[in-house]
Amino acid sequence: MANHPETIIGLALFDRLRTMPGVLPIAWPNVPFTPPDDQRYLRVYVLPGQPEGIDLSGRHIRRGGMLQVSVCWPAGAGITAPREVAGAIADRFALGTIIERGGLRIRISRPPRIAGELIEDVVVQVPITAHYDVLS
């Protein structure tokens, strides 16, 4: 059972991605993963930011950060299909989306950004970044 806010936030964001209809296989952080033969999969990370005290008593903390998802696609197969997958992920984490878990309300605080593709030897990656914040 998760107790720390950063752990709860990460699990909630991961669950929202994992339960997305038609989701590709996911390479989770620090979990062994073998890419599928077709090289179509997601790679995901949560990048917590610096927590901030927002009141003089120190009772309220704002936690923010980013969910980073990369759509991995076979090199040489074009960019349209992986960008469409990236768009569906961005829609899943649209501005204003609220995810509740463990007594926390995680809010997507900016429109997700779909970055330019990163071309490697075997795969092309299309990164999506969704910023979140939580008041606790």
Score class of each variant (00 low, 15 high):
Tyr132Lys: 12
Glu52Gln: 15
Ala88Arg: 15
Val134Cys: 09
Thr34His: 03
Ala115Ile: 01
Thr97Val: 15
Leu42Gln: 05
Phe14Leu: 13
Gln39Tyr: 07
Gly53Met: 13
Asp91Thr: 13
Arg107Asn: 05
Ile108Asp: 08
Ile79Arg: 09
Ser57Asp: 14
Arg59Ile: 02
Glu100Leu: 00
Arg101Val: 01
Leu135Tyr: 15
Val71Leu: 06
Leu56Lys: 05
Thr97Glu: 15
Ile114Val: 14
Ala75Tyr: 01
Leu11Arg: 12
Val85Arg: 14
Gly87Ala: 07
Ser57Arg: 02
Leu24Val: 03
Ala130Thr: 03
Thr7Pro: 00
Ala130Lys: 03
Gly96Asp: 05
Ile8Asp: 02
Ile9Met: 10
Glu84Phe: 11
Tyr132Met: 11
Pro36Cys: 09
Gln39Ile: 06
Ala130Arg: 02
Arg16Met: 02
Leu56Pro: 01
Arg113Leu: 15
Asp121Pro: 00
Thr19Trp: 11
Tyr41Arg: 08
Ile119Phe: 00
Ile128Leu: 12
Tyr132Asp: 10
Ser57Ile: 08
Ile119Tyr: 00
Cys72Asp: 08
Ser109Cys: 14
Gly49Cys: 06
Leu95Pro: 06
Leu11Lys: 11
Thr97Gln: 12
Tyr41Leu: 11
Gly58Lys: 02
Ala27Ile: 01
Ile119Pro: 01
Ala90Thr: 08
Glu117Thr: 09
Ile108Glu: 07
Val85Pro: 11
Ile9Arg: 09
Asp133Ala: 13
Gly53Lys: 11
Gly76Tyr: 04
Pro29Leu: 06
Val124Gly: 03
Glu117Leu: 03
Trp28Cys: 01
Ile26Pro: 10
Val85Leu: 10
Pro74Ala: 06
Gly58Phe: 08
Ile61Asn: 05
Ile99His: 02
Ile98Tyr: 03
Leu67Tyr: 07
Gln125Leu: 12
Ala88Cys: 01
Leu24Tyr: 12
Ala86Glu: 10
Asp37Arg: 13
Arg16Val: 02
Arg16His: 07
Cys72Gln: 12
Thr19Asp: 15
Met20Lys: 07
Val31Asp: 06
Gly10Arg: 13
Gly49His: 09
Pro127Phe: 03
Asp38Cys: 02
Glu6Ser: 11
Thr34Lys: 08
Ala81Gly: 00
Asp133Val: 04
His131Asp: 12
Asp133Glu: 15
Val44Arg: 00
Ala115Glu: 09
Arg101Thr: 05
Leu24Phe: 10
Ala77Tyr: 12
Ile98Thr: 11
Glu52His: 01
Asp15Thr: 12
